[in-house]
């Protein structure tokens, strides 16, 4: 069994060139949206806006400007987090979503029937339907390339090594070094998803951020969808029990009725 593999994305060196987005689209033969006629966002240089079934990488542009000369751009190449505890995999009712030998999460397109449970289950909004296949799709961490010893297309194409591919344990050490370096320079750098004891058992695609997670469109404390299962089921059973008793009391045959007496259920 190979080691768990993944990405460490250092957002401080991302220059927003979108080479990763293009490389991903090319390697995975993902179609253009709307026949290539892209609707511009109109309020941002980010025109991809989100990850979906035909955008498995998305370079997020966060424009923090107070005035024309006062501000900064944060850029982050977003992708499936290949969660160690993955919500998408947890709920998938067809078994299409699997964990691979590289500890990554992959949707088998020939099994998926497009029920879309995984879309709502992913805490990060990663998955969507690919209109060509009619199935849910997302980053595979280039499972096909990993199989033959190649690194994923995006990290291969990244000209600044903002996206680094490797064994998770090694990436974590490297990431911590980078955080220490930035902190010594006075930058407020934090890792997101690098802690194996943290949310979702750690993310196999983790990030170095210099602002709050929410600013990057990332939930602060991502959780599994089944956290609600026990409570929601118990309350449903309780509700059913109450209604069951009401039905039993109200709909059963009553002696009063037989005798034609005035009962609650009498004619009106």
């Amino acid at each position: 069994m190979p080691e768990p593999m993944g990405f460490f994305t250092d957002t401080t060196v991302c220059i927003g060139c979108k080479a990763c987005e293009v490389a991903c689209k090319e390697w995975n033969q993902l179609p253009a949206e709307n026949g290539g006629i892209r609707e511009l966002s109109g309020d941002s240089y980010d025109n991809t806006r989100r990850l979906d079934g035909i955008h498995w990488r998305h370079v997020r542009f966060i424009e923090q400007f107070k005035g024309p000369y006062d501000g900064r751009w944060l850029m982050m190449s977003d992708v499936c987090k290949h969660c160690v505890q993955a919500g998408c995999l947890e709920v998938c009712p067809t078994g299409a979503i699997i964990r691979t030998e590289f500890d990554t999460v992959v949707i088998q397109s020939d099994v998926c029937n497009g029920c879309r449970a995984c879309i709502a289950a992913c805490p990060f909004g990663v998955i969507d339907i690919n209109p060509v296949s009619g199935t849910a799709q997302k980053c595979t961490l280039c499972y096909d390339r990993l199989k033959v010893g190649l690194e994923p297309a995006c990290s291969k194409a990244c000209p600044t090594d903002s996206i680094q591919f490797g064994a998770i344990t090694e990436l974590r050490t490297r990431a911590q070094k980078r955080v220490d370096q930035l902190k010594s320079q006075g930058v407020k750098a934090e890792l997101y998803g690098a802690d194996p004891n943290g949310a979702l058992g750690g993310l196999n695609s983790f990030y170095l951020l210099v602002d709050q997670p929410e600013v990057y469109g990332l939930p602060r404390d991502p959780q599994l969808p089944t956290r609600n299962l026990a409570m929601s089921s118990s309350l449903s059973v309780a509700s059913a029990a109450v209604l069951g008793v009401l039905a039993l009391v109200g709909l059963r045959k009553r002696r009063m009725d037989d005798m034609g007496g005035p009962g609650e259920g009498g004619s009106n």
Partner: peptide
């Protein structure tokens, strides 16, 4: 409720309500 969507996953009462 067993999702990560706003409203749905923010309350445990939807099942009881639908019952």
């Amino acid at each position: 409720s067993v999702t990560n969507r706003p409203i749905w996953a923010d309350s445990p009462w939807l099942g009881a309500l639908f019952v």
